[in-house]
Nucleic acid binder design. Structure first.
Length: 492
RNA sequence: GGUGUCUUGGCCGAGCGGUUAGGCAAUGGUUUGCAAAACCAUGUACAGCGGUUCAAAUCCGCUAGACACCUCCA
């Protein structure tokens, strides 16, 4: 039997602002769409926090036995700078600055993005569509919106008529806004707009002569508005209605609001059952953002080449750090916090390694079934990874007690225990045991030899020599650990 | 100005009406030739004020502070 049948997942829905029982539209199948990056620069750690959380959502859904179609787009056109209607296409701007082709920018940062995802052990989504690959579909959708009376053309550009939509619908339903309030509080923009009212957003923008990213359309040579691509691609690959739509909190308004308006205009239905939003990652108590320069790049953490952290950290530690906080909470990034996570991560992984050599006993002193239930309960409760990790440390304690002969598990329990632990650490959380991968055969052999020599010295009470071996190894980053059953080591 | 979220022990961070979250650090102990590492045990909290309740970190109100969105943003 599939695990999802015995695990009732609860999901916090941003739309209802409550935790709801998760019921897919089609039993056993889940459609999930997550707003991906705009590839006009490197994805920073704040961006990655969102993708990392949904990676865990994806992993857990798969673990539960759901068949998941996970769509995460790449925005490679149509994402405008400043005001969505007066600004300049982000990709095109970067290309002009760097004097390269727009698609060269797209390629460079897409490759970088994928490099980061690989380093951080992400599962690839089922489909990773691009905006430029769906210009035709976007034009079709604009036509449909115009036909239904919610889009209008002015000077070659097409806008969505928010006030018309709001008569029968609630524009602002997701972000808790009212159109009337928006009208009062919208800042006056300097550029003259073709729009009927400032809340309207662009579906298609006419490109001026210098604009290099452009496509022909019934209205003008131009490019699609940013909000459109997600409506188009989610509908195309997941249908008019699908289960989960994810993204960062900052996309709630206006991006997701616009998506709802566009999709609902075309299909007449609410497109998404569960809206999930991740909270922001802070650096120096401020939101990480490309525009302010307040950010750190994921690969800079791995290399240690940055001005923020005292040293390099592994991808798995960064994952662990992220998962120790709830995705709906603001998380403050700092070197101290990462270092604390690193130690906890090491403790966890060392216990996992110990587990491989643990022998079963006649009785079980630990209730493995109850523990397993707790682990699932944590994840079933809106993907509560911090609670899951707390339970994983219960397991660490048990493993260490077994090592000290103060606890035991029967063969059957030990197998279950190991399976569940591995499932959650590696399959669901996507952590990696880098330590074991780093130890090459040769290093293992050499250190084993030194341990042997040191043991001989110690047996002869030649403390000077044994301490020399120990101290010089530690200087090289190799930590010897004297235990009851001999000496082991770990690399720092 | 509008809207929303948040303020937990030395630090990070769960909990969201009654039971020890967890990690890091600290203290004591076990272990060790001495150490390191490891393990075991332990403490200090819920921004302030007021209210509801048998019971509040948890619900309500006010005050102070922080952050976010309202304009591109994961």
């Amino acid at each position: 039997m599939e695990l999802y049948k015995e695990n009732q997942l609860k999901v916090y829905n941003s739309l209802s602002k409550t935790k709801e029982e998760f019921k897919p539209l089609t039993d056993g199948y889940v459609g999930m769409y997550v707003c991906g990056p705009t590839v006009y620069s490197n994805a920073h750690l704040g961006n990655v926090r969102t993708f990392m959380f949904f990676d865990v959502v994806y992993r857990y859904l798969l673990h539960l036995g759901y068949k998941v179609r996970y769509v995460r787009n790449i925005t490679d056109a149509g994402h405008l700078e400043n005001d969505a209607d007066e600004g300049e296409d982000r990709i095109a701007k970067k290309a002009r600055l760097e004097e390269i082709e727009p698609m060269e920018v797209v390629q460079r940062y897409t490759v970088d993005f994928h490099d980061v995802l690989k380093n951080y052990n992400f599962l690839p989504p089922s489909i990773e569509p691009t905006a430029t690959g769906h210009i035709l579909e976007q034009i079709e959708m604009i036509k449909e919106i115009i036909e239904k009376g919610f889009g209008y053309e002015v000077n070659g550009s097409v806008y969505f008529d928010v006030l018309a939509y709001n008569k029968e619908n609630h524009y602002g339903i997701l972000s808790g806004r009212k159109v009337e309030d928006l009208i009062h509080n919208t800042r006056t923009l300097d550029g003259q707009s073709d729009k009927k009212n400032p809340q309207d957003f662009a579906l298609w923008k006419k490109a001026d002569e210098r604009h290099i990213m452009r496509w022909p359309s019934p209205w003008s040579d131009g490019f699609p508005g940013w909000h459109l691509e997600c409506s188009v691609m989610s509908t195309k690959y997941l249908g008019e209605q699908f289960d989960i739509h994810g993204g960062g909190m900052d996309l709630k308004f206006p991006h997701h609001e616009c998506e709802i308006a566009q999709s609902k205009t075309c299909s007449g239905k609410n497109p998404v059952s569960y809206w999930m939003h991740t909270n922001m990652l802070l650096l120096n108590s401020q939101k990480m953002a490309k525009s302010t320069g307040n950010f750190i790049l994921p690969n800079e953490i791995l290399s240690g080449k940055n001005n923020i952290l005292p040293k390099a950290f592994s991808a798995s530690v960064v994952r662990f750090f992220n998962m120790q906080a709830n995705y709906r909470s603001i998380l403050d990034f700092s070197g101290d916090a990462l270092e604390a996570s690193e130690k906890g991560h090491t403790k966890l992984m060392e216990a996992v390694q110990l587990l491989a050599n643990v022998k079963s006993g006649k009785t079980s002193t630990f209730d493995v079934l109850a523990w397993k239930k707790d682990c699932y309960a944590a994840m079933n409760d809106d993907f509560n990874t911090p609670i899951l990790i707390a339970h994983l440390f219960d397991a660490v304690k048990v493993i260490n007690l077994i090592k000290e002969d103060k606890a035991s598990l029967t063969a059957e329990d030990l197998l279950l225990f190991t399976t569940v632990l591995y499932n959650f650490i590696f399959d669901v959380l996507g952590l990696m045991n880098e330590n074991s991968q780093d130890n090459s055969e040769k290093i293992n052999g050499v250190v084993a030899l030194l341990i042997k020599l040191r043991k001989q010295a110690r047996d002869n009470k030649d403390w000077a020599l044994s301490d020399q071996i120990r101290d010089e190894l530690i200087a090289l980053g190799i930590q010897l650990k004297d235990g009851k059953d001999g000496t082991t080591f770990s690399l720092n």
